[in-house]
Design a protein around this nucleic acid. Structure first.
Lengths: 213, 213
DNA sequence: CAGCCGACTATACGAGCGTATAGTCGGCTG
DNA sequence: CAGCCGACTATACGCTCGTATAGTCGGCTG
């Protein structure tokens, strides 16, 4: 199926997803999107009402597509079937980029996805590592924030990697570095205790200052 | 020293740093900055030439201030002296926010700082954990990308924390969660090996597809 | 075939942006 | 005191943006 086979509405939406993912909502004009989709700017308004309406349609479409692929992997068990993961890889990369930008742009739908991921992380902690922290919610928020934040630093990470982290070569290298990272401890107990003490001191000082005023 | 004691040039620069940190470069107008500094918009142009010139001045000022505080901590050894860390804490938080936004906005100065941090991380790995990874550069890029990316996810992390992560309460909680995170292993060797195999498969498939074409 | 309706385009409007320019004012210098 | 110069303001220009409106076209329906 080529681009020309799609309805104009779908072409506009797909072009918007790509441009929003690349430049963000504010960095993309309706004229840019119209040109990329090969239609007139007025047609965006006809189909989506406004730029904000188009954004909501893009959010919804990305959400639907994510759920569909996730279902294929989990329910149909296609992860094992050869060729499936590589075939959806480009789409998954695009959705990563889109959701990450949407998080930075302040999209409500993306924020809801973030909150969902935090809940899932909390459940994971409960199940597999209940003693890892005293602040389960904080740990989960840090975990999800770091994961999605790493994607937000796309340009800088890719530059230091010497490869685009959303293309195959850079992506596999990135994941392997992350696996090393998650498999290791960077702080020994002594340093960890030092850090905890420093934070306690900062809190105490802050409370002291509040009293003075 | 109150705001009125500063020269107009310094007030403009400080107002710009705050607004750029909050809303980014594109989200801030020269009129906003002028109003926050209590001057006319034309004065920005008089002192800084253009909005881009103002950005460069802000970048430079933040860089200078960072180096100054870092020097006080390392050379003068003020970290131990009571009250010093809490006293610079608000400034440090502001600079964190500014640099993070600058990274997302594509500031060359911020990109250079990112690259510096990657180099420092590589040196740290060499010194303290030389066997932690086979891809030292990749590991360092992930480490720095996650650190700065976490700050970029400010709104979402704060929302899930129930506290502003750039204020004392949220910040100390965040750091303690990060310490737990850095002190622990989330993946056991079996899962890590699985992940490495999956990435190898993705690479092989990709090379295969390239040959076909 | 007449009428209609959705898809689509052409064009224009109003607001907000960065920037340019002309001018005012106060203090310093010779 | 005359002249100048930097700090600063008022105002406007030109552009781009999202949005609004009027109109064209083709196919479907009664």
């Amino acid at each position: 199926m080529t681009d020309e086979d799609l309805t104009a509405r779908a072409r506009i939406r797909d072009a918007a997803i790509r441009l929003f993912a690349d430049r963000g909502m504010d960095g993309t004009t309706v004229r840019d999107i119209a040109q990329a989709a090969g239609v007139s700017p007025g047609l965006l308004r006809h189909h989506f009402g406004s730029k904000e309406g188009l954004r909501e349609a893009c959010d919804q479409h990305v959400l639907d597509l994510s759920m569909k692929i996730k279902a294929e992997i989990i329910i149909d068990g296609k992860m094992a079937s050869p060729g499936f993961m590589p075939s959806v890889h480009p789409t998954v990369m695009l959705m990563y980029r889109y959701v990450t930008r949407a998080l930075l742009d302040g999209s409500p739908a993306a924020a809801a996805m973030f909150d969902d991921m935090v809940l899932i992380a909390e459940q994971w902690i409960d199940k597999f590592a209940p003693d890892i922290t005293q602040d389960r919610r904080g740990f989960a928020a840090v975990l999800v924030g770091m994961q999605s934040g790493l994607l937000a630093m796309h340009d800088h990470v890719s530059r230091n990697l010497g490869a685009d982290m959303f293309a195959t070569e850079g992506y596999t290298r990135l994941v392997e570095a992350m696996v090393d990272f998650y498999s290791s401890t960077l702080l020994d107990p002594t340093l960890a205790a030092d850090a905890h003490r420093a934070m306690q001191a900062l809190r105490d000082n802050h409370r002291g200052n509040q009293k003075e005023q």
